[in-house]
């Protein structure tokens, strides 16, 4: 088995193993299940970009893509988590700016 064949097989296996995560995105009972699966798929896409770069002999270009994709995935995942967390009303948020999260958790 040459290196090129191994790289193609690894990329295809990575893509096929993303399909259960895609199933979890489609039928996940809560929205956080979908979010976890999207996070897994995003991380694996960053890895898959490096594999594509190895196949095309242009790793020095694709590594930057992978770094950017991992960063955007992290920021997007954190943003959606915060958004879904803040959809419930929190009355203590308006008055106290300091450790409002802990107070809100204790009060309710």
């Amino acid at each position: 088995m040459t290196t090129e064949e191994f790289t193609v097989c690894a990329g295809v296996a990575l893509f096929v193993l993303m399909l259960p995560a895609l199933y979890r995105v489609a039928v996940g009972p809560t929205s956080f299940d979908r979010l976890v699966a999207v996070n897994v798929i995003g991380t694996k896409t960053a890895v898959l970009l490096v594999i594509i770069g190895v196949l095309f002999n242009r790793v020095e270009m694709f590594v930057d893509f992978a770094l950017t994709y991992a960063l955007l995935n992290f920021v997007g995942s954190l943003a959606v988590a915060r958004f879904l967390n803040r959809t419930k009303p929190m009355p203590e948020e308006k008055t106290s700016r300091g450790s409002s999260r802990k107070k809100g958790a204790k009060a309710s």
């Binding site: 809560t30 956080f32 979010l35 976890v36 996070n39 991380t43 991992a70 960063l71 992290f74 995942s77 954190l78 988590a81 915060r82 879904l84 967390n85 419930k88 958790a105």
Partner: peptide, 16 residues
Amino acid sequence: TSPTSTHALMRAGFED
């Protein structure tokens, strides 16, 4: 970042 986002999602789901 991966454990950080896992922690954030878990905490958001728990508080939800």
